[in-house]
């Protein structure tokens, strides 16, 4: 009888231990992790300090986030240069630039924190291969795993996302070029997921910024411009253009990770084509002529220069009133 029991135990071990072992090594879905990461920014409460570095610059910043009564409260404060403070309450963003004579109050077109419900992973996959790395690490005292977004072409950078093992919060974000060179890094040094935040943490204090608060009124207008080509996965974020000031319009492109802003200004004289960079941010300018009117096209985005350059070469007025473009 004793021998029979021993056999039973042996059989149990043989049959179930591999099952448990397998359950332990089952990898979560990389796409689902990306969605979880995005949701964690809007659903978790946190108070953390992170370092942002690019090229030879480094800044530490403090970010606080809280969801109260269905509304999002978020603040971002520059701890080193005291240059900016960004506050977000619901769908309103206030950017305070202490070195200057104004602050910005922006009302975004839609609630920014609901955007992840429509996160289009299929579109993201057109431009990137989502890979869950075996690499594990410890960031800001928390265990983290690495999710890689490997670009499928030369039109975007690679991203390495270090996610908290427990809540999938993004603890570290590296942006690298095709050669693997690090262009931009955001890394938390400390983060508290049980902060005791109050509303007063998210209200701009008197004296912190200029009394003059400008509120740019972005107006949706029918876009007169189009692209003959877009890198795979890139699409317009807004269905229309935004009129920003004095006849200038803005379009926004995104592939789900990187974004490119396109500004069009009517100008009187041509400007030399230029390309400028800072870390992962690239800015290109080019003058084009439509009929007798000159336009300065400015594109800014966290993409390689080749992407900006090619997009500038295929940016055209829409076919309906498409005069010949001279460059």
């Amino acid at each position: 009888m004793k021998q029979l029991r021993m056999w039973r135990v042996y059989l149990l071990l043989v049959c179930f231990v591999p099952v448990f072992a397998q359950a332990e090594v089952t990898q979560p879905d990389a796409a689902q992790l990306f969605i979880d990461m995005s949701k964690s920014f809007s659903e978790l409460s946190y108070d953390g300090i992170f370092v942002h570095s690019e090229e030879n610059q480094m800044n530490s910043m403090r970010v606080k986030h809280e969801r109260k009564e269905g509304k999002e409260y978020e603040s971002l404060v520059d701890l080193d240069g005291q240059k900016i403070k960004v506050l977000r309450i619901g769908d309103t963003v206030i950017c305070v630039y202490p070195n200057e004579s104004y602050s910005n109050k922006l009302t975004l077109g839609k609630a920014p924190f609901d955007r992840f419900k429509q996160l289009d992973v299929d579109r993201l996959k057109q431009g990137y291969r989502l890979e869950l790395s075996d690499k594990m690490g410890r960031i800001a005292g928390r265990d983290a795993r690495v999710l890689k977004l490997v670009p499928k072409d030369d039109y975007r950078y690679g991203h390495e996302l270090w996610l908290d093992n427990k809540n999938h919060f993004l603890l570290k974000h590296d942006i690298t070029d095709a050669s693997g060179k690090l262009l931009d890094r955001i890394q938390f040094t400390a983060v508290n997921f049980h902060p005791n935040l109050k509303r007063s943490d998210f209200i701009p204090k008197k004296g912190e910024y200029s009394e003059k608060l400008t509120e740019p009124m972005y107006r949706a207008v029918k876009s007169q411009w189009t692209f003959d080509w877009l890198p795979p996965g890139f699409a317009l974020v807004w269905p229309n253009a935004r009129a920003i000031h004095q006849g200038s319009t803005m379009l926004l492109l995104s592939d789900g990770m990187a974004s490119i802003s396109v500004f069009v200004d009517a100008v009187n004289k041509p400007k030399k084509a230029t390309m400028m960079s800072m870390g992962a941010t690239m800015a290109g300018e080019k003058t084009i002529k439509v009929g007798n009117q000159l336009y300065l096209v400015t594109m800014v985005g966290e993409v390689p220069s080749i992407t900006i350059e090619k997009l500038m070469s295929v940016f055209r007025p829409k076919a309906k009133d498409k005069p010949k473009v001279k460059e």
Binding site: S38, F41, V63, S75, L108, P112, L170, L252, M257
Partner: peptide, 9 residues
């Protein structure tokens, strides 16, 4: 652009 980045603010 923060709208499309999925990383909050």
């Amino acid at each position: 652009a923060t709208i499309s980045a999925g990383q909050g603010i």
